[in-house]
Design a protein around this nucleic acid. Structure first.
Lengths: 342, 342
DNA sequence: CAGCCGCTCACATACGTATTCAGGCCCGTT
DNA sequence: AACGGGCCTGAATACGTATGTGAGCGGCTG
């Protein structure tokens, strides 16, 4: 009744009247096994509910068929919160891993030293998926360490100056530009940008660049009073909008560097009596689920989370298998909703 | 340089002038190792950036210091969406695992046969955390299989009739009752319940029970016309609200079995010209992030996601270590916001 | 001085699989 | 009939760690 030893390939072998290596070969689908033998082995294995021992298999083959997903969270957020966009990617990452018969380990990056190298050094995973940045300088140092160690990894984000690692990201610059051109097309001329333009937040920086270039393309330039720092939280977006109002500069549109920022900003603007979109058009970035149910529903630059997750996983697996894979710049798409009427 | 063989405990041993077992004992902190020797070994290990090979260690010790998180998603949702409440738990689960030096594997339940037993049978994980139900009959069958196999697992949800497994859940019945009593206290008498009352959705069933009991406690009874089925999606909530309106029954309050249902319902009600909370008071369940930023902000029965995640993990680890652990019923808390004014 | 004990350590081994190598069989060819 | 070549299988071994067992050594007791 149950609690006995788990069956091993030796047990199967004995019952099938063959040797252990034959069992291994048969169950792994290797060619060169007599079909009748294979059938017999498979049948017995199924009957005993046999599973290959992953630990033994990993030890022997020297790889684990496992990927590790590492979140680098902003250290200021003591919370368990993860960027909602990452949430959307997560499902896709999990599914794609399953499709490719890989397991997925998941973890936050700990503050502790060099823990990030553990996964591959300890042979827990064959490769790493890096999401987020956390502290930017630390992040870059860790990237360098990973490269030096020859670890396989992919990262979600913008290509960094030093070109470190296999980068998958969406076309932040293009998306920012498209959003701003859309606002210009609606006749808006005083467009505020809510989100850090610093290169320490590479995606935001790229979005800002696209924004600025679009303005320039229309013969306009960025008014420094209309660029307010914010990070990806609602509260930060609210604070930025408040600062914008307090600053007293005139504005008729907002491009937020993320949906959360936009949602926080809309709340403050509405509380201050601004009508959206009549007085202020608002566009966000990401297209998280909350965007479509905001009031008014938020126009936003969509990143295809499903494609993103799939691309990350498949690129990493390709990399592990030494196939020729490269970075990818995924397209964005402007989703027009009511927050940005004429 | 990098690409050479990873150091093993033998390498450390040779450099330290001791045997491999001594290295193993020293690094594992076992007593009975000369302090000087231990220090020497630790220093060399650090210098070589040595990590214990997890595969070998797992094979030898017969456990993996790894937990597996299995989502049973509603099979009808082809999407990568996960219940937002689970998202909130996820962070807490990850952190708690890390605190206890455990890794976390994560997966959706595949449709394929008995894949759920793989994790322990294949010795990938020492225990399982089960979230969600998917198809209820299938779920119960799998629970039974896990029990029969002697697998260690905990589940999030309501205690099932057959008492299968170590269950961690919140006090759904109490929470449902508190919400309804709050509405009654506001003078509402025609309270609709949006959410399946079927026992195939155990949490919803419990919430409904609490609701019905509270009504009974006030001398009222449930009007069947005011109970509309819905599952945890905004669209389903919207459809339920529409059905309620179409049904023509009078109602002055809604208790939704989840926040997503409530948010979807509010959208439809407002579109139909109902004022919230003046015409209809609305209460949700869960307190997902979107609840506080809904318009109007949603009154809801909070489940403490952080505590939930922590309790799941710690109970499971206790179980694995054969410590005396039991099921837990976590408290809920009514969070009053504007959707439920006087 | 014999005997004993506690402290450190080395030797040997097991965990369950995947893979290399070699051998046996059967068939067809010359 | 001898030989070569496929096809299938078994014997042996390595992966890197953790642990049971026993040995050497010094100090202490009687």
């Amino acid at each position: 009744m149950g609690m006995q030893r788990k069956p091993t390939s030796f047990d199967i072998a004995q019952l099938a009247g063959v040797s252990q290596p034959t069992v291994s070969r048969a169950l792994r689908g290797e060619s060169g096994v007599n079909p009748a033998t294979r059938l017999r082995i498979e049948s017995i294995a199924k009957q005993l509910n046999y599973r290959v021992d992953k630990a033994a298999s990993n030890l022997r083959t020297r790889h684990s068929q496992t990927l590790a997903l590492l979140f680098f969270e902003d250290p200021t957020s003591d919370d368990s919160l993860i960027n909602p966009f990452f949430h959307s990617m997560l499902g896709s990452i999990i599914r794609t891993c399953a499709e490719h018969n890989h397991d997925l380990l998941i973890s936050f990056q700990q503050l502790s030293s060099d823990w990030h190298t553990d996964y591959e050094d300890a042979r827990k995973a064959d490769g790493l998926i890096l999401l987020g940045y956390g502290d930017f300088e630390l992040y870059r140092a860790r990237l360098k360490a990973l490269r030096d160690a020859g670890t396989h990894f992919v990262r979600w984000g913008s290509v960094l100056a030093e070109g470190a690692g296999l980068t998958i990201g969406c076309d932040n610059r293009g998306g920012g530009g498209e959003a701003t051109r859309h606002l210009l097309g609606l006749g808006r001329k005083r467009i505020a940008f809510l989100g850090t333009a610093s290169s320490h937040y590479p995606e935001f920086h790229e979005r800002y660049r696209g924004h600025a270039e679009a303005l320039a393309g229309a013969g306009l330039s960025v008014d420094p009073a209309l660029q307010i720092d914010a990070i990806t939280t609602e509260d930060s977006g609210a604070a930025a909008a408040q600062a914008l109002l307090d600053g007293g500069a005139h504005f008729d549109a907002i491009l937020a560097a993320s949906d959360l920022i936009a949602i926080g900003a809309m709340r403050v603007l509405q509380a201050a009596g601004k009508r959206i979109p009549e007085d202020v058009s608002v566009i966000g970035f990401d297209d998280i689920p909350a965007a479509s149910s905001a009031s008014p529903p938020l126009t936003t630059v969509m990143q295809d989370a499903r494609l993103a997750g799939r691309t990350l996983v498949e690129t990493l697996i390709g990399r592990i298998r030494e196939k020729p894979v490269g970075p990818a710049l995924l397209p964005t798409k402007l989703i027009v909703r009511k927050s940005c009427g004429a």
